[in-house]
Each structure stands twice: as structure tokens, then as C-alpha cells.
């Protein structure tokens, strides 16, 4: 798999969530995603960026434009050094939330992408990787 472009953006405020959405849209366009595919990855990025800010007390996102054979994709990796998630299985259920949201952030984003991976350690932080392919 080849990485065509690779950048890191901070997530410190609610304006950064908007920034993450804009950058993700731009990169999805660069990878010639269809409108629906663009919208799905941007929405997933928005959900996870908000999680990073609200539950992870801020962090960063790494955006990569990738290519594997004829397939082109966008991959995002959200990292925070927050409190971590004690029960991952539970956190991935629809409707589960510890905050004020609807509990659709993790489970919903998972449905919007092709690849989804989450690593979390209590007291250390959380890393969520998502990718959507054209």
C-alpha cells in the first residue's frame, strides 16, 4: 500500500472539528470520492474528532491519502492521551454514552467506513483508525 500524502492536525477546540471536516473533504475530493463517499467519511471524521475533544480532552488526527492497487482511500487516525475507555465492547454499542451525546459516535462512524480499528488503555488514551475506500 502506498501513502500519497500524510499530515497531522491538532484537535484542541470546536473550531478544530470544523477544520478536520474541511481537510477530510478536501482529501476525499483529491482521491476522487463520490459525493456520498465524501459525506460518509467527513461525517465519521466529525464524530471522532468530537470524541477526541470531549472524551479524550483533545489530541490530534493524522490524515493519509492511500492507494492499494486500483483502490484509493482516505485513512484517519485519531489519538488522544485522555482517560481511555474501560469497556470497548460496550462503547461500540448503539446508544451507549458517558457524555451528553446520543451514543452514536463510535458505532455510527464504524458503519460509515470500510476499515475501523480502536485501541484504548485506561489512563493512557485512545487511538481510533478509520479508512474509507473508493
Amino acid at each position: 500500500m502506498a501513502t500519497l500524502r500524510d499530515e497531522i492536525f491538532p484537535i484542541r477546540s470546536s473550531d478544530d472539528i470544523v477544520k478536520v471536516r474541511q481537510v477530510t473533504r478536501e482529501w476525499a475530493l483529491m482521491q476522487t470520492f463520490s459525493l456520498v463517499d465524501q459525506t460518509k467519511i467527513v461525517t465519521a471524521a466529525s464524530e471522532l474528532a468530537r470524541n477526541t475533544l470531549e472524551y479524550g480532552r483533545g489530541g490530534e488526527v493524522r490524515i493519509q491519502a492511500v492507494q492499494e492497487g486500483p483502490r484509493r482511500g482516505v485513512r484517519l487516525t485519531f489519538t488522544d492521551q485522555g482517560p481511555g475507555i474501560p469497556d470497548l465492547a460496550k462503547a461500540l454499542q448503539d446508544g451507549f454514552t458517558t457524555g451528553s451525546g446520543m451514543g452514536l459516535g463510535l458505532s455510527g462512524s464504524k458503519r460509515l467506513v470500510n476499515d475501523f480499528d480502536i485501541q484504548s488503555e485506561v489512563g493512557k488514551g485512545t487511538t481510533v483508525m478509520i479508512a474509507r475506500w473508493k
Binding site: 459525506t39 464524530e47 452514536l104 458505532s107 462512524s109 458503519r111 460509515l112
Partner: peptide, 10 residues
């Protein structure tokens, strides 16, 4: 596109 995504999101 927004409607499709919202439904998928749940």
C-alpha cells in the same frame, strides 16, 4: 448524500 449518511449513522 446527507440523508443517506444520517440513516447509516443511525
Amino acid at each position: 448524500a446527507v440523508a443517506i449518511t444520517l440513516v447509516e449513522l443511525g
